[in-house]
Design a binder for these strands. Structure first.
Length: 513
RNA sequence: UCCCCGAUAGCUCAAUGGUAGAGCGAGCGGCUGUUAACCGCUAGGUUCAAGGUUCGAGUCCUUGUCGGGGAGCCA
């Protein structure tokens, strides 16, 4: 008897003696042929379960086999045989005559309250039992597709000569302006050290406010505040006197909102690099497209302009879509049948067609001439709203489209100023269903222009000293983008809610598992 | 954070302000090479929480908590 994973057992030759191990999905009994039970066993190695035929001559048939239910874990010795029934090509027959056995490894102690009983469950409900939901068809398929996509991302970059760079999770720089941050601190919440009245002149670093935060979610208590768990915890403002020199790192630190600034340093030495890791945003976002902890892919290419940036973005997306269609055909067939009819065709369409590239200015013209009534008016210089982006990619072009060269007023300081002095070399890749899946830009490599932009936006040059050094010492044109990994999974699977494509979602008021 | 909707059996949902219900799941039995199985029986409830209106509240009002859809922020 050799132990085969279910995926291998399903393709093994009839007649082979095998052992399979896994969890019971269903059990059905029959009195035919002297009595037998059909047990669907899955082990997560592929979408399908394998059917075990347990005969009544097994010594523990009445005492154990006939009592198996959804969720029990078992080991089965048996002989692989062509199935007499429809619905599966092969099955494992366990009977005494062929040395078969069914060993129960773990019972379900109260079948009535096992959260994943054999029936349809809503995704909202399954989110409350996230430790068990991966045993379902849908979440098993999502997990395998997620892995497939991650491997394909690494493979694409590796084949293209990119190096994977592990940028820090904890950052001392609030450089990005990419959103509210989670503070990292070992200070005693109940006894926060203060710098005293003379702060600022004694080597104590000035305390800056966290960027654009709201008070409600800020992870910081007010000294002496009510111990009520619902008490709001404002973050200290610029005027506060908390002495961060006594904190673990001797300065304010947060969880990263982007590895981009760090990875640019490696880009300006290794030429082609990327990050792929967790990212944290403390925004109070309650949507099906946002998480407080998510994974992001951020390539950065030296000697590369915006057009080259967009080519990599398009190639990467098409590469990973091809991978998921060929490597996870079983799971994709399920998504195509049960989650989003037509998803396979939709992905194939994206693979086959070249992405469109148009300027922001052109997009504004299209929207203004669309004759469509939008809730928010379209106006050059204002950011496009979700409804505008959806119209462009879902209705007007009906395919992925890359918008380029946005007004500088609505984009980040590090994006390269175009010759018109009004726009920056930024791009957003818009896809149907998701909207913005990639945001990127050519970076400003000219120190004097970068400094001017920092000034314009009221940012302090000294906070960006090492970032500015890249422009002082052998600066090069370079470009990159950020791809939200979970949004990619949504796009590939047709799943609706981003909380269902990450194993344990973190969102406002949600960190149970 | 804003707008809208919701919370009743393990799950999905019913129930004019007047006795708490069904389907599925579960347990037991029957039938059957079964596979959305089928038939019968049984068990299963602090109707999200705290107040309020009322002779009487699952139902009406207030506040809160949590969930969903949309928006903003963005990936």
């Amino acid at each position: 008897m050799s132990w085969l994973r279910v995926v291998d057992a399903l393709s093994a030759k009839p007649g082979e003696k095998v052992t399979v191990k896994g969890w019971v999905r269903t059990r059905r009994d029959s009195k035919a042929d002297g009595g037998l039970s059909f047990i669907a066993v899955h082990d997560g190695t592929c979408f399908d379960a394998i059917q075990v035929v347990a005969r009544a001559d097994l010594p523990n048939y009445a005492s154990e086999v006939a009592k198996l239910g959804t969720g029990c874990s078992i080991e089965v010795d048996g002989t692989l045989a062509a199935s007499q029934g429809k619905g599966q090509a092969v099955e494992v027959v366990a009977e005494v005559a062929n040395g078969g056995a069914v060993r129960v490894i773990g019972w379900v102690d109260d079948p009535d309250t096992y959260p994943i009983s054999q029936k349809r469950h809503s995704f909202e409900y399954l989110r409350e039992v996230a430790h068990l939901r991966v045993r379902t068809n849908t979440f098993g398929a999502v997990a395998r597709v997620r892995h497939c996509l991650a491997m394909a991302v690494h493979r694409y970059f590796h084949e293209k000569g990119f190096y994977w760079v592990h940028t820090p999770i904890i950052t001392g720089a609030d450089c990005e302006g990419a959103g509210q941050m989670f503070r990292v601190s070992t200070l005693d919440f109940l006894n926060i050290p203060h710098a005293g009245a003379g702060a600022g002149g004694t080597g104590v670093p000035p305390v800056r406010p966290m960027k654009d935060h709201g008070d409600k979610l800020a992870p910081w208590p007010t000294p002496g505040a009510s111990p009520s768990p619902s008490a709001q915890c404002p973050v200290p403002r610029a005027s506060s006197s908390i002495d961060f020199s006594q904190d673990f790192f001797g300065k304010e630190t947060n969880l990263t909102v982007s590895g981009q600034l760090n990875v640019e340093t490696y880009c300006c030495a290794l030429s082609r690099v990327y990050t792929f890791g967790p990212t944290f945003r403390a925004e109070n976002s309650n949507t099906s497209r946002h998480l407080a902890e998510f994974w992001m892919i951020e390539p950065e290419m030296a000697f590369c302009d915006l057009m080259g940036d967009s080519v990599i973005a398009e190639e990467l997306l098409k590469y990973v879509l091809r991978a998921v269609l060929t490597e996870r055909a079983d799971d994709m067939a399920f998504f195509n049948e049960r989650i989003e009819p037509g998803v396979i065709e939709r992905l194939q369409h994206v693979i086959d067609k070249p992405f469109l590239r148009i300027d922001y200015t052109e997009a504004v013209e299209i929207l203004r001439n669309s004759g469509k009534k939008f809730e928010y008016a379209v106006e050059w210089g204002k950011d496009l709203q979700s409804e505008h982006e959806r119209y462009l990619t879902e209705e007007h072009f009906k395919q992925p489209v890359i918008l380029m060269n946005y007004p500088k007023g609505i984009k980040a300081f590090y994006m390269r100023l175009n010759d018109d002095n009004k726009t920056v070399a930024a791009m957003d890749v818009l896809v149907p269903k998701i909207g913005e899946i990639i945001g990127g830009s050519q970076r400003e490599e000219r120190l004097e222009v970068l400094d001017r932009r920092l000034d314009e936006m009221g940012l302090h040059k000294q906070d960006y000293w090492w970032y500015r050094d890249l422009r002082r010492y052998g600066t090069v044109p370079h470009a990159g983008f950020g791809l939200g990994f979970e949004r990619l999974i949504l796009f590939c699977t047709g799943m609706q809610n981003i909380r269902d494509v990450i194993p344990f979602p973190r969102a406002p008021k949600q960190a149970e598992f």
